[in-house]
Structures are given as structure tokens and as C-alpha cells.
């Protein structure tokens, strides 16, 4: 191979390398990019709104009390519900606390089981139920939000029940005022988003008392268990 051609080949290789090096330097830049994204999903929760209260009871008591901002798990012994309890009603009040970043629906389902065998045993219709005044207050709460109470409120109110003129049995007659209306999950309360953009450590929220009431009567003797489950969702 002629010497000049050899030089030409070597030089071509060197030129190529130099050009590649120069091109590589274009990789330097005066700008850089950071892109970011985040997701906010619907969130709802129900907790205890504080201690429960029991009134009009003869015997019994609150077995497991509610603790504010803790999971709702309250157990109440309503005591004697026969005529030996001379109070007008045995009433329990259980505060609930709801929080959400979206519209919510609170539903409830209840079961009532009695050891009695006749129609005079305590049944679901004998257990009055209602949700009281809804309160939206505190820092971080959407105080302009609105709520719809599907129950009739405190079941012991005169407007919500009376003695059946035919049977003589006391009945909770208002709309969704007793547990027979909640044999399956049924809406009790609904409304717009509860919390503004605040962290979960903020303990405020929507509070509402759940009322339960039984009028002592000549029920068939025996033991009765009432089990209630509240569920809140963001549809």
C-alpha cells in the first residue's frame, strides 16, 4: 500500500474520532427537566365521636365506651326493659365522627335477636333509632357543606312514636325511626365533602349523635342482642 494512502487512512480514522468527540460534547446542556405527578383518591372514614351516654336504664351500663377519633366499637348493656323499669325510655347516644374529601353516604344495617319465641319478644321495630343534629365545625372542616339526614332524629320525640291504639304496643312510627328500616344497609345520612385540604392529623370532622331508644314494656322475658354496623362510602 502506498505510503500516502496509509497516511490518508490513519488520518481519516483520527478525523472521525475528533468529530465524535466534538459531537459528544453537545451532550452538555444548560437545562434539565423534572416532571412530577400526584394522585388524590376518594377518602372517607368513620370513627367514634367520643364517649357514649346511657339514660333511663335500670341496671346495665356502657360496657365498652367510645374514644374520640378511634375506631367505632361501642358496647352497651341497656339493662332491664320490662315494666319494672319505670322510665319512659332507655336511651343510648353514640357520637359518630365522619371525615371525607368527597361526597359521602353513611348507611347502617342492624340485626335484633331475642331469645323469646312469641311476637311479644323485642323485635327490630321496638328499637328506636335516629341521627341527631349534624355538626360541621372546627379548623379545616368544610363548614359550608350540606347534609341530608334520612332519619327522623331522636326517636324519643313525641312526633316520632306513639302507642298503637289497637295493640297498645309502643311504636316508633316516623320515617326510618326504628331498626326494622335497616334490616339491610340503608342510607341514614349523606352530604358533601367534609374536610378541606388539611392533613389527617387534624382531628376535626363532622359529628352526629346516633340515638337508640327502647320503651320498657311487657315484652316477653328473655335476652336481646342488637347489633348495628355503620358504613360510610364515597360513591
Amino acid at each position: 500500500m502506498p505510503r500516502s494512502l496509509k497516511l490518508f487512512n490513519r488520518s481519516t480514522l483520527l478525523i472521525t474520532l475528533l468529530l465524535l468527540a466534538a459531537t459528544a460534547c453537545f451532550g452538555q446542556s444548560t437545562t434539565g427537566t423534572v416532571t412530577m405527578s400526584a394522585t388524590v383518591s376518594k377518602f372517607v372514614e368513620i370513627n367514634s365521636g367520643g364517649p357514649a351516654t346511657l339514660s333511663g336504664n335500670s341496671g346495665g351500663g356502657i360496657t365498652t365506651d367510645g374514644v374520640a377519633n378511634s375506631p367505632l366499637a361501642v358496647s352497651i348493656n341497656l339493662g332491664e326493659l320490662g315494666p319494672s323499669n319505670t322510665n319512659a325510655f332507655v336511651s343510648a347516644q353514640v357520637p359518630l365522627k365522619l371525615r371525607s374529601n368527597a361526597s359521602y353516604v353513611l348507611s347502617m344495617s342492624a340485626t335484633v335477636t331475642s331469645s323469646g319465641t312469641t311476637s311479644n319478644k323485642i323485635g327490630a321495630a321496638d328499637v328506636g333509632f335516629g341521627l341527631g343534629t349534624v355538626t360541621r365545625s372546627g379548623t379545616g372542616v368544610n363548614t359550608s357543606g350540606t347534609d341530608t339526614n334520612a332519619t327522623s332524629g331522636d326517636p324519643t320525640l313525641a312526633a316520632n312514636g306513639s302507642v298503637n291504639g289497637s295493640t297498645g304496643r309502643y311504636e316508633f312510627t316516623a320515617v326510618r325511626s326504628n331498626l326494622s328500616a335497616f334490616a339491610s344497609a340503608t342510607t341514614a345520612l349523606s352530604g358533601s365533602f367534609i374536610m378541606n385540604a388539611v392533613p389527617r392529623s387534624n382531628t376535626n370532622g363532622l359529628t352526629v349523635p346516633a340515638f337508640f331508644a327502647i320503651k320498657p314494656q311487657f315484652f316477653e322475658n328473655g335476652a336481646t342482642t342488637v347489633s348495628v354496623t355503620f358504613t360510610v362510602v364515597a360513591p
Partner: peptide, 25 residues
């Protein structure tokens, strides 16, 4: 270090995105 911090909160639902451009001059 460019440090970015987001505290989970009761934000309204949805997705959000942003683009940052860093420039040296």
C-alpha cells in the same frame, strides 16, 4: 439537592402534574 415535599392531606380528588425546568446561565 433539589428537595420536594408533599404532605398527604384531604385534597379534592384528582390527578395533578407539573413540569420544572432548571436552567444554568
Amino acid at each position: 439537592d433539589a428537595v420536594f415535599v408533599l404532605t398527604p392531606q384531604f385534597f379534592a380528588t384528582g390527578t395533578s402534574s407539573a413540569t420544572l425546568i432548571f436552567t444554568i446561565a
